[in-house]
Design a binder for these strands. Sequence first.
DNA 1: TGCGTAATACTCGTCTGCGAGTACTCGTGG
DNA 2: CCACGAGTACTCGCAGACGAGTATTACGCA
Lengths: 210, 210
Amino acid sequence: MKRRKVGNLLGLAVLSVVIEGPKHPYEMAAVLKQRGKDSDMPIKWGSLYTVVANLEKHGFVEAVESVKDGGRPERTVYRITPAGREEFEDWVRELVGTLDREPPRFKAGLSMMGVLGPDQAISLLRQRATELDERAEAQRAGLEQLRGVMPRLFLVEVEYDLAMTEAEARWVRTFLGELTSGAVPGTDAWRRWYETGEFPDDLGEFVEGK
Amino acid sequence: MKRRKVGNLLGLAVLSVVIEGPKHPYEMAAVLKQRGKDSDMPIKWGSLYTVVANLEKHGFVEAVESVKDGGRPERTVYRITPAGREEFEDWVRELVGTLDREPPRFKAGLSMMGVLGPDQAISLLRQRATELDERAEAQRAGLEQLRGVMPRLFLVEVEYDLAMTEAEARWVRTFLGELTSGAVPGTDAWRRWYETGEFPDDLGEFVEGK
DNA sequence: TGCGTAATACTCGTCTGCGAGTACTCGTGG
DNA sequence: CCACGAGTACTCGCAGACGAGTATTACGCA
């Protein structure tokens, strides 16, 4: 038995809008988009209908009616069920309350940075640092602008995002500093390894530093 | 044309081991597992063979031979190609140098925390904070222990992970502090909304605080 | 010597995700 | 007044991800 009957996060988004009233899939997507949820998660049309169908299969939503409004294609309107409400809350509870091992891709990159050699690594990290700063700046601006319009409580997730961006930027900058100032032992051995392609059979080379 | 011909991160892992010498799939998995890569990414057997096949299809690896060693099932041994080497480096370059919008699930949870009401939210956040501390502690311990054995350069990704865990823990604690001390306006309106199910039609309720 | 269990090395089939199409309708500018 | 582009509302089908199964051999141990 797997964890979640419907695993796609888009399913959560669907529940979150359909909880406010019955909707047909296209409308759900429209609401999501209008609320800016699509910025972190562009709506995938293919997935939307699959996900809604799955939610229905598991009794989290049910079809209410098929409206033929004007000459438009037939629309099936769905409504959330009590089970769906339950599932939604439980899902949010899980998301907020527990850590999920979902390791960031950057971590994978770091662990394989060896192949690039120190010089390239440094320039890439510099680039990342710049991008992080830019993103943080954009987030700060967006936040500032929203602060007048939206209550603080609705901005929490943006604040979190910003905090994390800043933290990563700080870490990258710190590491970069150590790397360029020669505080990290083994950089020379690393360069040699990159240039010759031969891995030093003495691991000690990486720890002495020159 | 999509970004990456083989998109699965497992493909990167495969390249990273096959670059050290020809291997058959099962052996790749074994090496990965032995190096502890499987802790952040448990090997999915189904994916492994699909991914290797795809890598072959796109010319990143090639079959070297089919060995019949002992009575064991036939094994197909793969070797990396120059294109594969190129792809590997390029992939790592991308991972290190650029930001990928891959929004954390916790962020989704935060943005929907509303349905839970403030009290439940607070207790869940406390739980998360505890888990974060535990993880950080475990990472610190692991790091300390590895530091004697492995060169610093090979521990970078763990250091990054730790820094991020600590940063998140700090943010959660800070937010929790604000929430419980009443520094966040609108908490009462939030509770009322949760208890009655009625969303205040005056958004101002969330901003006045009481 | 025989038996159960772990390790080896995959194969198969399902289920999901999603891009690309389809078809219809409404508004508007020429 | 009608052609065309933007919006509406899906459908289809492929490709990738993955779990669960399969078959064989090696090994410990009673």
